[in-house]
Amino acid sequence: MKTYWIAFVLVLVLGFLVLGWAGWRIYQEKPPIPESVVTKEGKVLIAPGDIGEGQNVWQAMGGMELGSVWGHGSYVAPDWTADWLHRECEWILNRWSQTEYGKWYAQLLPEHRAALQARLTGMMRKNTYQPATGSIVIDSIRAAAFEANALHYAEVFSKGKSEYAIPSGALQDPVKLRQLSAFFFWTSWAASTNRPGDEISYTSNWPHEDLVDNHPTPDALVWTGVSIILLLAGIGAMVWYHASQAPESLPHMIPNADPLFNTVHTPSQKATIKYFFAVSALILVQI
């Protein structure tokens, strides 16, 4: 028994050491939350505090019960990070395509599409966060794409969309609608912008987006495989250990009746009956 306790404590200590190390690394490499987002011309697109307020708006509406951000949440509605990023990329590519070729991006020759996509990738992945001012500086075309996306999301959340399980009138306040768009923009910015001195985004190139070369990193693929192998190996080792042990002996005297039937319930156990009835009633009312 002592050996089991030693093994148990070692697993706990090692597990929390790894969790602590990973948490510290995440804290060190987390994407900055800017004070504001401005264009190169100096126009303020997102005012100080709007990103945090937008997160509060999303949480107040249900948060992870209403779509997901960075892959965390429910899948009734889209992942707002991926949705914003793809819409922004498509809007910019179509604007450039219409301006330079008079056609939609999808109608261009492959070499023209490749040239525009390379330009888009360079613009989107460049880290323009200014630590001195706490601002993100973006091109005017990204600001125009922001306004287009903001209009789209204002319609989705104010008029509703059954495919996303969003009812009509879910959010009507124009200030909160814009703050919500500011939050979605920031999650998309972090997902497509390279970390300082690196070639991967703050979210390790998640979500997948071909238009800005957001692809799984080699490290992610390797460690995903390693983690699965270790998980299966650990399960196999436990099964092998259990199978290699001698069968546990049965008790010398087997009772004629189940001992649990004669259990005397304590007052605290009886008190929980009211709780379970109350919870069941609330669930039925919600349904």
Rank of each mutant, 00 (worst) to 15 (best):
I141C: 05
A154L: 03
H242C: 11
I141R: 09
G197L: 09
G49K: 10
A278D: 08
M253V: 15
A77V: 05
I283H: 02
N262D: 13
V57L: 12
V222P: 03
V11Q: 10
P174C: 03
Q286N: 06
I166K: 01
D198E: 15
K161F: 02
P32A: 10
L232R: 04
I200N: 15
W70A: 14
G160Q: 05
H112G: 00
P78I: 04
G54V: 06
L284V: 09
F185V: 05
P255S: 13
V137D: 06
N205Q: 07
H215Q: 09
E100I: 11
P267H: 06
Q107F: 08
L171R: 08
W223H: 01
R25Y: 03
V175D: 12
N194E: 10
N194A: 10
I92W: 00
H208C: 02
A143L: 04
G134N: 03
S162H: 09
E155T: 09
V76T: 12
T133W: 02
S158N: 08
I33T: 13
S280H: 07
V44Y: 00
F146C: 01
G197A: 04
A257E: 15
H242R: 15
L93D: 04
L93S: 03
L260H: 05
F8K: 02
W96A: 00
V212P: 07
Y164V: 06
V76F: 11
A77Y: 13
Q107H: 10
L45Y: 01
E209Y: 06
G225R: 03
L85H: 01
W206R: 08
A60K: 08
S158W: 03
A150H: 01
V137I: 14
F8P: 00
G49M: 04
G73W: 00
S162M: 07
G160E: 02
D50K: 15
M123E: 13
V13T: 10
G160Y: 07
Y241P: 00
Y129W: 14
Q55W: 04
A148W: 00
E90V: 14
Y202K: 12
Q117D: 03
S244Q: 14
V76I: 09
V175F: 02
W240D: 06
V212R: 08
L45C: 01
P218L: 10
G169E: 04
V226G: 00
L10G: 13
Q269H: 09
L85Q: 07
A233W: 09
A106W: 05
I26L: 15
I287E: 04
P207N: 09
F183C: 11
N149F: 05
A47G: 02
A278S: 14
W104I: 13
G234N: 10
I46W: 05
M253W: 14
S162Y: 04
H72W: 02
M61Q: 07
R195Y: 07
W80V: 03
D173Y: 02
R87T: 06
K2I: 15
K2M: 14
S68R: 02
L93G: 03
S188F: 02
K40V: 10
V57T: 11
F183Q: 07
I283W: 06
W240R: 15
A246T: 14
D219S: 08
L282D: 09
S97H: 09
Q98T: 12
V175E: 11
V264E: 10
E199I: 14
R125V: 01
Q286G: 03
A22I: 13
T263R: 13
Q55T: 01
S181V: 01
E90R: 13
G134D: 06
L180A: 13
Y105P: 13
E111A: 07
A233L: 13
I229H: 08
W206S: 14
E35R: 15
